[in-house]
Amino acid sequence: MPVILAIESSCDETSAAVYADGKMLSNIIANQTIHEAYGGVVPELASRVHQQNIIPAVQQAISNAKVSKNDIDAVAFTRGPGLLGSLLVGVSFAKAFALAQNLPLIEVNHMQAHILAHFIDEPKPTFPFLCLTVSGGHTQIVLVKDYFDMEVIGHTQDDAAGEAMDKTSKILGLPYPGGPLIDKYARQGNPNAYQFPEPQIPGYNFSFSGLKTAILYFIQKNEAATPGFVQNNMADICASVEKRIVTILLNKLTKAALDYGIKDVALAGGVSANTGLRQGLQELGNKYNWNTFVPKMEYCTDNAAMIAIAGYYKFLQKDFTDQHVAPLARMPF
């Protein structure tokens, strides 16, 4: 089996992984704490920190995998979508490493890789399956017919679910990143304490901009009427917001699964780490007799392991790119 070195740098995580012999031998993720002071990712700072982190991350991945650079058969990397400056660091390093070692290059679509993370470990879904892919930048329902035969049948028409959580956390005065904190507070709160609207969007598409506005007005109104309202009711607010976002996502996923008659249903992307969403999918699986799949936590957020598994399947197809490849901020399936 080939030894694949993979590199991921689409946003603010610098990650490197090595896959060989049907196993993920290493998966190193270097997070960037510099953005906490700004309440969100600053693209210019992200690209600079990637430059600092990428060589140590790759060295550690190779070392942890107990291989040498001469054992590597191909270099897989995220071409897009993502922040252009961040992508440029990873793409440039991958091209330089491959050129120096005379290795083939494999470009990977970041969103496809999130879905293919389900093939790193057992159990694995059976084709065709549906995957709800949810992150800070994307919300999609994807019909997965084969490893690289995927059709987006539903998508957000404005904001992503992860962005709605991040903006809510900012409105509530929580530090960045806010998604995990909303999850934490929601576990302690009453999800039925407050009611937020569910957008009536036809088909399998989503919309979260109206929900964000409703949450903002709710907070402003109640905080003006009762100073300290947010601080005193943080857990209930987070639980109620999380419940609404999760029901929006799972209602559309349920409609798609029933319409298509598909029994294998999966989650992917950073928001798939959310406890409420994971539990909600499991409950639906029990109700409809679905086979449900959620990656391990380390494979939910941006990581190079998912790039490695996508690169492995592309290697088998001899689907290589050349040294002229450039990063793409927008990269459709």
Rank of each mutant, 00 (worst) to 15 (best):
A100H: 04
K170C: 02
S169T: 01
I248R: 04
F196Y: 12
A17V: 04
F206G: 06
Q157K: 15
A235D: 15
A305Q: 10
G137E: 03
C11R: 00
M331C: 11
G261I: 12
I245L: 11
H155P: 03
L130A: 11
I309T: 10
E151N: 14
V265D: 02
G162K: 03
C238N: 09
D146G: 15
A96W: 06
T139S: 05
L99P: 04
A225N: 14
Q195M: 13
G280Q: 01
A266S: 15
M1T: 13
K287P: 02
P123M: 11
L216W: 04
F97A: 12
P295N: 10
K145D: 13
I245S: 00
L45A: 07
G82R: 02
T156A: 06
S68F: 09
H114Q: 11
A113F: 02
N303K: 07
Y299C: 07
K170D: 01
K255M: 14
S68A: 10
G22C: 05
A94C: 09
W290V: 01
K95Y: 11
H35N: 03
F218S: 08
G173S: 03
V42T: 02
S10G: 07
T78H: 08
N232G: 12
I153L: 12
H155W: 05
I307M: 09
Q51L: 15
A193H: 09
E163L: 05
K221Y: 06
I55N: 10
V49L: 09
K184H: 13
A16Q: 06
K184R: 15
N109Q: 07
I171A: 08
L249G: 03
A305E: 09
G22Q: 10
S68I: 08
V108T: 04
H50Y: 01
N205P: 11
L253I: 00
L258P: 08
A214N: 13
T247R: 13
L5D: 03
I182R: 00
Q231K: 15
K212N: 03
A160C: 10
E36R: 14
T156P: 12
F129T: 09
G261N: 11
P180M: 11
I215K: 10
K66G: 06
E122W: 06
I215L: 04
L211T: 05
P332S: 12
M165E: 07
K287G: 06
A257N: 06
K252H: 08
G82D: 12
N303H: 08
P2M: 07
C131I: 01
Q231F: 07
N64I: 05
R330Q: 12
Q101I: 06
G90P: 07
A193G: 10
A193V: 08
Q32H: 13
Q200S: 13
N289C: 07
T139G: 04
L87E: 03
H50S: 13
G210R: 09
Q282A: 14
